[in-house]
């Protein structure tokens, strides 16, 4: 239960951060917090109480946790980093053109 709550709290914290922070880098950090919440949620879904890690070396029977979400999270973590790399390289370009990272300055395109 606690794990689910923390996961959802992290997702909400990330989204709230994206909505209420004005610095672009901070918005990107908030995005990665929300992503972390999603990973934690996936791992929590796969957990079985009393289960052991899904490794057969030295396995002595008993329940195991679900290995599939772990595989998904491994993929998702890399994707999250890719998004981060793209975002930061965009931010550098924004800074080059605007001299600031404040999103309220970043509104020349409108209407």
């Amino acid at each position: 239960m606690m794990v689910y709550l923390t996961a959802f709290a992290l997702i909400m914290l990330g989204i709230a951060g994206m909505l209420f922070r004005r610095n672009l880098l901070k918005i990107i950090m908030a995005l990665s917090v929300a992503d972390s919440g999603a990973y934690l949620l996936l791992i929590a879904i796969g957990y079985r109480s009393g289960g052991t890690a899904p490794i057969l070396t030295g396995y002595e029977g008993g329940p195991m946790v679900d290995p599939l979400p772990q595989a998904l999270v491994l993929t998702a973590i890399v994707i999250g980093v890719c998004v981060l790399i793209m975002a930061v390289s965009l931010v550098v370009n924004v800074y080059r053109h605007y001299g600031t990272l404040d999103v309220s300055e970043l509104r020349r395109l409108r209407g």
């Binding site: 994206m18 672009l24 918005i27 990107i28 995005l31 998004v83 793209m86 975002a87 965009l90 931010v91 370009n93 924004v94 080059r96 053109h97 605007y98 970043l106 020349r108 395109l109």
Partner: peptide
């Protein structure tokens, strides 16, 4: 600047 701003918004 236009491309960068649009790309940033689209990305987020």
């Amino acid at each position: 600047w236009e491309a960068v701003e649009a790309g940033m918004k689209y990305m987020i």
